[in-house]
Write a protein that binds this DNA or RNA. Structure first.
Length: 449
RNA sequence: GACCCUAUCGUCCAGUGGCCUAGGACACUCCCCUUUCACGGGAGUAACACGGGUUCGAAUCCCGUUAGGGUCGCCA
């Protein structure tokens, strides 16, 4: 790895549109990774030159999204820094000054009240960190018109303020989407006219839909804000995003951020557009959830349970339940229905499950008698744990000449109201003897009724 | 239309001239495990866009075609 001699400074410069696109999130992620790798600085700058709508809320979408992904910025909104302000709307004086410089250099002219930059009309060579060497021929004004810097009403155009801010904020590496690739030679002309050394550029491929079409805001998975509420763990989404256009090259799918930071190189980033595959993100989420330590899992779970109105007596009791439920689901959103049976006295029964496992088609009496036998066996237990529950159930099954499953299914439905759930013995252990027996009694009545 | 980028299984990646009858993962199908649902294990379907070169040898290099994407705003 070649260590840059100047301290690395990268930036993420979104405009507050009201949502953070996954493509933008990945751009932020790669900028963050690169800065962390080189012990550099990651700057967040809000490009709000042209927005009148709900900006506070829209800015919050960005900062919330980055926070959620764990991408902490070193300078920017809510944080400050010595190159601020970090909102373009507050940097007018700086832009005026830079415009003055261009004016003095004779680079500007007025066009119907707007201010334009007179291109030097040369060939511009870009040595892109990802795309390699690209030569642009800007000699023809017909195909490459002069860019506008400022509108007649005094507001600023993206190309100009973007370049000025990158100069002012001493950005060394501009890592952004490939949609800016064709704009880059114009930006380079601006740097030169301002007597500034252009930064290194790295243009990342875009993220498209599965069918190759452009991913618009409304496509599933496009807005980062939908992930937290759907029950994705930020570490899983972050991991998935790393794998979109980059690879650790050893066939790993799950990779820690510290490993990504250690292995990441800009010139290893793919040049090909990537299609977004929510199914893989979903799978990765399941992997993360399964392997996550209980404390972290509980932390992520609590908001979902609170939102569903579920309450629990103690943190320990909650952890007990989450521990047996944790290996089962892939989306935190599903948690309430799995957890509810443990923290409610009024069980809601799944009718289909009751019909199938308790009433059966013509074996209602059988299910009831089995539950009764099981209740008696359990009542006699002096220790209430997975091992003794399993032993007692199997013993009872043998006595009745029934298959294990023929006791398990009624027991499951009677104790939880559902046909799916954690392992039966784990579930009963956590439920406790008293509640188990009373639910069995209710189950018996239901089977007969 | 002009300019720019790209082109390996349906999808994400590996592959940087011989180790490739192309590897991993997701998804899908089947089997095993199993008290449900998951997990896990095993097997399978499935790709170098096409055409020319270069080379003893090409998925890998070059050219062309085709296809996809991007840019060409007084949007960012």
């Amino acid at each position: 790895m070649s260590q840059p001699s100047v301290p690395v400074r990268t930036r993420f410069a979104p405009s507050p549109t009201g949502l953070l696109h996954v493509g933008g999130a990945r751009t932020a992620l790669f900028n963050w990774i690169y800065a962390r790798k080189h012990a550099g600085t990651f700057v967040l700058r809000i490009e709000d030159t042209d927005h009148s709508r709900n900006t506070e809320e829209a800015k919050k979408v960005i900062t919330d999204g980055l926070h959620w992904l764990g991408l902490d910025w070193d300078e920017g909104p809510l944080k400050g820094g010595s190159y601020g302000p970090y909102y373009q709307s507050e940097r007018t004086a700086i832009y005026e000054e830079y415009l003055g410089r261009l004016e003095k250099g004779g680079h500007l002219y007025e066009d119907n009240g707007a201010i334009r930059f007179r291109s030097p009309r040369e060939k511009v060579v870009l040595q892109d960190e990802i795309c390699g060497r690209i030569e642009f021929d800007l000699t023809n004004p017909g195909t490459h018109p002069d860019i506008t810097l400022r509108r007649p009403d005094g507001s600023w155009i993206f190309h100009f303020v973007n370049v000025v801010d990158d100069i002012e904020m001493k950005i060394t590496h501009v890592i952004r989407g490939e949609d800016h690739l064709s704009n880059t030679p114009k930006h380079i002309e601006l740097y030169k006219a301002l007597g500034a050394e252009p930064p290194r550029f790295a243009h990342m491929p875009l993220i498209l839909n599965r069918d190759g079409s452009k991913m618009s805001k409304r496509d599933e998975g496009a807005a980062l804000g939908t992930y937290p509420e759907a029950g994705y763990a930020p570490e899983a989404v972050r991991n998935y995003l790393c794998l979109l256009g980059w690879s650790p090259k050893d066939n790993r799918e799950m990779i820690s951020m510290s490993d990504v930071i250690a292995l990441f190189e800009l010139n290893q980033v793919n040049r090909r557009n990537a299609a977004f595959d929510l199914a893989k993100c979903f799978w990765l989420n399941g992997q993360y959830l399964m392997q996550m330590d209980l404390a972290r899992y509980t932390e992520l779970a609590i908001p979902f349970l609170e939102k569903a109105g579920i309450t629990w007596p103690t943190y320990e009791s909650l952890e007990q339940v989450l521990a047996i439920v944790k290996p089962k689901l892939k989306l935190l959103k599903e948690l309430p229905e799995w957890v509810a049976p443990f923290f409610t006295e009024e069980l809601s029964y799944d009718e289909a499950a009751v019909a199938k496992s308790l009433k059966g088609s013509d074996q209602g009496a059988t299910a009831a008698s089995r539950l009764k036998a099981l209740s008696e066996a359990f009542k006699a237990l002096t220790t209430w744990d997975v091992a003794s529950l399993e032993a007692a159930l199997k013993e009872t099954a043998a006595k009745l000449g029934a298959k294990t499953g023929e006791l398990v299914h009624p027991a499951r439905v009677a104790s939880s109201g559902r046909s799916v759930g954690p392992g039966l013995y784990e579930m009963l252990e956590v439920l406790g003897k008293e509640r188990t027996l009373s639910r069995f009694a209710t189950g018996e009545a239901k089977a007969l009724g």
